[in-house]
Write a protein that binds this DNA or RNA. Sequence first.
DNA 1: GAGTTATTTGACTATATTGTCAAAGAACCG
DNA 2: CGGTTCTTTGACAATATAGTCAAATAACTC
Lengths: 188, 188
Amino acid sequence: MVDAAGRAIGERGLANVRIKDIADQAGMSPGSVLYYYPELDDLLIEVHQETVDQYFAQREQFLDGLDRPVDQLRTALRTGLPSGPDDVTARLLYGMHARCEASPAHAALMTNLFDREVALYLTILRSANEAGDVELRASAETIARTLVALEDGLGLHIVSRTRPMTIDAARTIMTSCAEQFTGVTLSS
Amino acid sequence: MVDAAGRAIGERGLANVRIKDIADQAGMSPGSVLYYYPELDDLLIEVHQETVDQYFAQREQFLDGLDRPVDQLRTALRTGLPSGPDDVTARLLYGMHARCEASPAHAALMTNLFDREVALYLTILRSANEAGDVELRASAETIARTLVALEDGLGLHIVSRTRPMTIDAARTIMTSCAEQFTGVTLSS
DNA sequence: GAGTTATTTGACTATATTGTCAAAGAACCG
DNA sequence: CGGTTCTTTGACAATATAGTCAAATAACTC
């Protein structure tokens, strides 16, 4: 059901999704959708939750098996960007940002995602630093927040089809920024 | 009329604005709105255009009268962020990002704004560098793009009420990032 | 000021979508 | 089984909103 809603949003866009679309994707009637979610917002919040969890789990998974923290950093820098303008997960998450203004639940989920991503970078940065592989030219907290916010800004432009902002250009920028903060070469 | 639409969006939100809201703001009847804009999208595009122009003009104006490029840089770093979660202009622009996926016109306006902001930083960075006030530890183009994308990412979190991301925190990050790229202290 | 065109209006139609509900059907339980 | 609860359905009512349009009004021209 939550999956079906996610697919429906992927097809029709978060702003235009109708109960009927969700019902179709779930192989149900519109009445059944309302039976489980009298407030459609509740369903959207679960979709948001689910998407955040899956996205973050995947990001962590990319790091599995990488022993050297610098390699983890390099990989994290690559996997924090949308895969392209049509990246379904990224589009959904950016769409959810708009709902944060009105819905504390969505805002909390965004805060949660942000915190987890910052924590991920923090861990990597600190262990890379302890391993003597990188400097930390600002506080680890600041660097981590910078990288996450930069990912979000670049991703927004990728998804919005801002022309000069291709995935390659965005990767260059991520790398370059991380290099400045850590004093090492990170381009792969 | 475009102004009225902007106000209506400010009150009701871009996603929920109705023709009636615009008519009310303009002191007209709904019929008159349709008379001038049979396609409501055309009006939204003009609102977008207008907002981009005004926003950028104001950003430039903040730099007026600042002779030293480093001061311009400091000011640019401060004025590129939303004034708070309720910043009407910022909310409108972030809302418009969602429309870029479907509308090339909106995407073009976003590209235009991005390019102009990058150009602004480019000018500042280059003259600060020529004045011998800053280093450029990456290409000016890369630094400028980084700063603009970072502003956008931070602004998105401010507007979305991502809790740890206050305006102060965001300013710290902007400053710290610029310091890394330029090798000088910029905090005011 | 008569005639012409442009603008404005608000009532009306068309449409899309949410939400209701009684009845049908399935699952479960003694 | 018979009864009970849970689930599902699709037709229907309620609502919201875009868009139409004839008629009223204003503006403009000669």
